[in-house]
Structure formats: C-alpha cells, structure tokens
Write a protein that binds this DNA or RNA. Sequence first.
DNA 1: ATGGATGCAAAAGTTTTGCAAAGAA
DNA 2: TTCTTTGCAAAACTTTTGCATCCAT
Lengths: 151, 151
Amino acid sequence: MSHDIETIAARLRRDGYRVTPQRQLILDAVCRLGGHVTAEAVYAAVREIVPALNQGTVYRTLNFFCEQGLVTATQQADGLTVYELAGQQPHHHLVCRSCGAAYEIPHDMLASLVEQAEAQYGFALEMNHISFFGCCQDCRRRRPYPAGSAG
Amino acid sequence: MSHDIETIAARLRRDGYRVTPQRQLILDAVCRLGGHVTAEAVYAAVREIVPALNQGTVYRTLNFFCEQGLVTATQQADGLTVYELAGQQPHHHLVCRSCGAAYEIPHDMLASLVEQAEAQYGFALEMNHISFFGCCQDCRRRRPYPAGSAG
DNA sequence: ATGGATGCAAAAGTTTTGCAAAGAA
DNA sequence: TTCTTTGCAAAACTTTTGCATCCAT
C-alpha cells in the first residue's frame, strides 16, 4: 500500500502541523523501503538523498508519524524498534528463533483469540501486526528446540 | 515456583561453571522479586544486600542464566528486556497500551493458534509467555482507541 | 594452581533533548 | 510575522566489553 501524500499533507496542515521536505522524505522512505524498517535504515535511506538530514529529525519524525497514526512501531525480539506504514493489511508472523525465518500467517488464525478477548475481557486487541516466536520445521529437524528466551 | 539451589549448583559445577555468591544472590533476587524483572530491578535488589556488586556482573549473570536455561528473557513493548525464572507455568497477558493494565489469560485461549501453527506450518510456538497489546474495557469507555504503535 | 568470574571503567549502540536558527503557513 | 520544525551536539539510557584481580574448585 502506498501513501496518499496529498491527503496526508492536507490533514497535517489542518491540524496545525507543517509539511516539510524532511517529513515527506522520511514518509517516502518508509513507504519505499517497505515492510519493517529501523530508524537507522530510514536515516541511511534519506541521507542518500539529503546528506544533511539529521538523525534526531528522523527519530522525532518517526515518532510524530506514530502519534499521527501514519506509521506504526513494533519491538522486534532483539529490542530494536521497527516501523511500517500504518493501514497495511493486518498480518502476523511466526518467527523462528533459531534461523530467523518469518512465516506470514493469515489473520483468521487469530480470530478465536480476538473474539474471546473481546467477549470475556472487553479487550480490543491490536491486530495490525503480531509476531509469534518459536522454532520452525527445518530447525526442529536439526535440533528439538533452541535454548534461550521466551516470547 | 522456587528454585532448587542444590540441584542447580550441582549441575553448574558439573558443567565446569562456578557457583559464586553473586550468582546465588542474583538468582535469588529473580526468584524473590517474582514475575518479570528488569536487569536494573535485579541490580537494585542485590545492591541492597551487597552494595559492591557490579552492574556488569548482573547483566553477565542474567545472560549466563539464560544460556543455562535457568531464566528466560522477553522483550517488553517498550523495548526493555525482562527476565523471569524458567519453568514457570505458561502464562499470557493482555496489556493495555493506554493505562498499562495487564490481564492474565488462560493458556487454552491460544490452543487453536498453537494447533494451527503446528499443523499448517510445522512451527512449534514458544508458549512460555506472550503479551498481546490493545485497549482494555475501561479505557475504551473513555476513548475509542489509543493512537500509537502496534504490537 | 588453574582458569572462570568479578569489579571497574570505558565504550558501544540506540534514542532523546535543549537551544538557536531556519522555514512553512 | 508567527510558531513549528530542523540541525547540531550533548546527554540519557541500556547493555557490552577489556583487562587486571580475585576466588571457587
């Protein structure tokens, strides 16, 4: 999914924020890089276009986009924060702790969980993107289960 | 669940590691504090008993315990690493992004997910502890949905 | 005595922040 | 012109690491 810069710009202006070249570049980079990107990757990407663009600006802008709901932030298992364009199709991953492989799983595998959380706890689960950790088929053949941390 | 220091000590010695006062203190602290503890919380706890104990030692020792399978590490949504004694009952949480409240949910709410991951992908999900994020009942009454990041 | 573990301190890596200058509205 | 945003640099914060010393075995 791409971003409609016109609509977004108009909305930001309406809300009293400013549409600067830096913000456009950074949003473009998140879109163009696709998937989950770290702040550093975004910084590297925009620096290729505008070398003077500051790292602090990248962090501030990504946080700003999160607050505005244009971008979402997720913690990876290694603690790094990754960003992606908001409004993506809900998607979830099975991430193998052993080899790092990520398998996308359909949203409806979580349907029962979502329903129960809603029905029993009145809890609205965030369903944009969830990563589950474990051990994939290939690695299980090699080794029963990796030592280490829990998700 | 408590830890059997005798058994653990014997196993570590057998494997060529040493059972030091620092290691005992740190494992004790993780056990005593209970639940999910940050490295800093452990550091603070052991310092009350042995003020000279070093912060680097806490990090090294927690990592060592993880490698030994005595402790598990998890990334919180805010990026902090939290530790807990291994071998706890599998437990999961619904964590509200708005107010921070955590609701424990029974393991079998995930049963269907676990089965499908296994059946369709041959993927063994780590089931020690998973946190789902969203918005709790109380906060939904105040505000339809919090802006911000996705889990 | 042997070599694994600790203490210390410095460094690494990511993210935040204060402030003056720049620039979008 | 106004006031948000940027650039710069320094700091904050968590975690890691090199090395000499210490101590569990």
